[in-house]
């Protein structure tokens, strides 16, 4: 059963006010960061949202938690619409959906102790009259930190420890869904494993559902059930993770997988698989956004935006000429 269901979500940013747009003769004073995004996340599963900078994956996450208003579309969480009353979701939704931000240290308020940081969700939601100290110690133990960390400040923590504090904060209110923005960014390889293992353990113990936003495909392959790949605001391919890695359908997905550095010096790639860079969102290409960089691009790609087509159970691709 789906815990979260997103239908045709669009998020746009105004780049100029009405007056400025009129004076400068801008036809479109918005840039579209997320376009017609639809997906579902099954309860207890992990969805990986993959994309490069500018793909709109972080904007999408912010829209889901209610930090960025969305222009159109619907979000249904656990059978109800948390945005029914306006752009600010209900308090219950804030309890049920927790977000972990990218930078492990700077997502913690610098002048507060670990105890204050981990206890803060309770205070915000009026649950502070419980025995906060005991609650904080329980959470710290759950994420594998000794109780004496409660008195430390964020700058006294290593990246991995700060990330654990972030996890403790995220799970404090027993959420159903955790959205993790680059949970392993900035961490050493050996620490990345610890954090991913911790997230996997908590998922099993607490029945959590995850959306993991990342550009690190090695992480995706190990940590997710389903994967969605975004390019310039659209989901270009979505499907079971194993299937995507075994047989990618979209040329961009294939290029992304091939671009991963090969950690075996005996099998070096001869050259980059993908040339050029992501086009600026201000000059969105006509037709398929990927066509300027795509080796398979044909005339229809330059004219028509491809629709999402189904290829096998739960696997969709937005491409006129998919790889299979």
């Amino acid at each position: 059963m789906s815990l979260l269901e997103i239908r045709d979500l669009n998020v746009r940013y105004a780049i100029a006010g009405r007056v400025k747009a009129a004076v400068a003769g801008l036809a479109n004073r918005y840039i579209d960061a997320v376009i017609d995004v639809s997906f579902e996340v099954a309860a207890g599963s992990t969805l990986a949202m993959v994309g490069e900078s500018g793909s709109g994956k972080s904007t999408l996450a912010r829209a889901i938690v209610g930090l960025t208003p969305f222009a159109s579309g619907s979000i249904v969480f656990d059978g109800s619409n948390p945005f029914a009353t306006g752009p600010h979701p209900s308090r219950a939704y804030h309890r049920d959906v927790a977000m972990m931000f990218q930078d492990p240290v700077s997502s913690l308020s610098p002048r507060r102790t670990v105890e204050a940081l981990v206890g803060e969700p309770f205070v915000i939601h009026g649950l502070g009259n419980r025995n906060l100290g005991a609650e904080v110690r329980r959470l710290l133990a759950l994420v594998g930190l000794p109780a004496d960390f409660a008195g430390r400040y964020p700058h006294q923590l290593s990246g991995g420890q700060a990330r654990r504090v972030g996890v403790a904060r995220a799970i404090a209110l027993n959420p159903k869904l955790i959205i993790a923005d680059e949970p392993t960014a900035g961490l050493d390889v050996s620490v990345q494993g610890e954090i991913l293992n911790l997230l996997a353990r908590l998922q099993a113990e607490l029945g959590l559902t995850y959306i993991v936003i990342t550009h690190n495909l090695a992480v995706v392959r190990h940590a997710s059930d389903r994967t969605a790949i975004m390019y310039m605001g659209r989901i270009v391919e979505a499907g079971p993770t194993a299937e995507i890695f075994a047989a990618a359908l979209h040329p961009y997905t294939a290029a992304l997988i091939a671009a991963q550095p090969n950690p075996d010096p005996a099998h070096r790639r001869s050259g980059p698989v993908l040339t050029g860079e992501v086009t600026s969102l201000r000059n969105r290409p006509r037709g398929c956004e990927f066509h300027p960089r795509c080796a398979r691009a044909a005339d229809d790609c330059r004219e028509l935006v491809p629709a999402a087509i189904g290829r096998g159970p739960g696997h969709t691709v937005r491409c006129h000429h998919p790889l299979a």
Binding site: V65, L67, H94, S107, L108, S109
Partner: peptide, 22 residues
């Protein structure tokens, strides 16, 4: 616009709390 303020906002904290405490 720093991440820690966004993190608190995503918890549903009131503006007064964000201003005074963070």
């Amino acid at each position: 616009s720093s991440e820690y303020i966004q993190a608190i906002e995503s918890l549903g904290a009131s503006k007064l709390r964000i201003i005074l405490i963070h």
